[in-house]
Design a protein around this nucleic acid. Sequence first.
DNA 1: TGATTAAGTTAGTCAAGACTAACTTTAGCA
DNA 2: TGCTAAAGTTAGTCTTGACTAACTTAATCA
Lengths: 145, 145
Amino acid sequence: MKELSPSLEDYLEAVYTLSRPEGFARASRVSALLKVSKPSVSAAMRTLGARGLVDQQRYACIRLTPAGLKAGAEIAGRHSLLKDFFTAILGLEEKKAEQDACRAEHALSREALLRLGRLSLFLKARPRGALLAAARTCVRGRTCK
Amino acid sequence: MKELSPSLEDYLEAVYTLSRPEGFARASRVSALLKVSKPSVSAAMRTLGARGLVDQQRYACIRLTPAGLKAGAEIAGRHSLLKDFFTAILGLEEKKAEQDACRAEHALSREALLRLGRLSLFLKARPRGALLAAARTCVRGRTCK
DNA sequence: TGATTAAGTTAGTCAAGACTAACTTTAGCA
DNA sequence: TGCTAAAGTTAGTCTTGACTAACTTAATCA
């Protein structure tokens, strides 16, 4: 099982996300979501197909294989963990958090993400949110005593 | 001023780091540090030279221009901020922290890094390190109450 | 001072990942 | 049912960033 490139992870994540409602994705939706040309999607699907992550028949809907579903869920999980950290802990604006999560999700190790998630939980779990509020205020650069 | 690619940022950071002691860097040291062939360094230096970040004469030492020094310092700063966060807050092992910092330093926005730095400070500044210790224990996955 | 070795460059190749233009298939409707 | 528009694919190109092999320049030491 070779590692997926950041680019292929993005495609897989897009397929995963778009598949949620109906169980399949269309290449044109992937193309629109990732802001990438249709031929690029086509090529990427061929690669993901060759790796056994999507089930691709010519001109048909894109469906994830069980392995693809698992991998897609993992990537989407990394994304939402990071986005949550960026908004809930660092207080980044929604759009910015989304962008940062998109890029950082390919960069951090499993271990770092796991611990970052725990840190999030820890900070959110303090009594009555007092600590989190203090941390967030600090992080926003207002007061930090 | 166009954005540098992750790859070019790595080269610039390496030149910056290697320049610290003596004021210049050698292509062979860069090659060894980044684990990349000498021709790759050569090509990268030509690009950085064209962007006005290094002062490159054929067969000579590599020196940063003032702009290159500024950009290099910024990249190195991002790196050390992240590495510190990964070790001091998340408790990652040194080597792992280094690897994660290398990759994440190209992915996070200025804003996110700024806030991450403040979060580090905040967590380290709590009285007698009690909070930090608790956070770190939690992040390591032992207890988290 | 000249030969040898280390450092650096050039030339040529490759793969990934993007694009456009042009073609094919599918699907929907008159 | 057949035509048309949308969806998807193929073919061909480009850029980036890496590599090896072979060459050139610089530096060192006998």
